[in-house]
């Protein structure tokens, strides 16, 4: 499966009480196009979606906060996982869509394939669902989403996805509009 198909298949698990933070580039465009609006669609601040998710989870403990990030973004913000591992807000969930490329900028390789994500997350002391290969076992995704979004602790799901450098149109909302619409729904 491609990242956008994985994001689209999340739809049935997203309720009004799910707050999504999506990383800049294709991931936020896909979240905008395929999931209920409004959510936090990042235009820049590469490396920061997990930190933004941490702040949001602390401010809204009754809601589920779901961070959707690509591997390049996750690796740039890796040290923030230490902070998340320390404070562990139970309502923070993170999905890493790992296509091992910087897809939005034309498909340059990331160094993600060198990482053993399960050992890495264990090292941070963070609960993880595991690593799923969406290409080999797409049917396991739905079960994983259900477990992730009902889990009572900080949980991370790493998913290997197919390379896909097809870019969607930019999100038409201006950043201030994104902020205002998102805050109005809370």
């Amino acid at each position: 499966m491609r990242g956008k198909e994985v994001i689209a298949s999340l739809k049935e698990f997203i309720s009004d009480d799910t707050l999504i933070v999506s990383s800049n580039g294709n991931v936020s465009r896909q979240a905008y196009n395929f999931l209920p609006q409004p959510q936090v669609y990042l235009r820049g601040s590469m490396g920061l979606p997990m930190s933004i998710g941490l702040g949001l989870a602390l401010a809204q403990p009754e809601k589920q906060v779901l961070v959707i990030t690509g591997d390049g973004n996750f690796l740039m913000g890796l040290s923030s996982m230490t902070t998340i591992g320390n404070y562990k807000p139970p309502n923070l969930k993170i999905i890493i869509l790992d296509n091992a490329i910087y897809a939005t900028t034309g498909g340059q390789e990331t160094v993600s394939s060198t990482v053993d994500y399960l050992k890495l997350l264990e090292g941070f002391g963070i609960q993880h669902y595991g690593s799923l290969n969406s290409i080999k076992s797409p049917s396991k995704l739905l079960e994983a989403f259900e477990i992730l979004l009902t889990s009572k602790q900080t949980t991370v799901l790493h998913i290997n996805v197919e390379e896909d450098i097809e870019n969607l149109e930019n999100i038409p909302w201006q950043p201030k509009e994104i902020k205002n619409k998102f805050m109005e729904k809370i």
Partner: peptide
Amino acid sequence: TREDEAVGIACGYYLG
């Protein structure tokens, strides 16, 4: 762990 991370946390908190 970093100052930019701190900005991310504060911005997420504000959005909440």
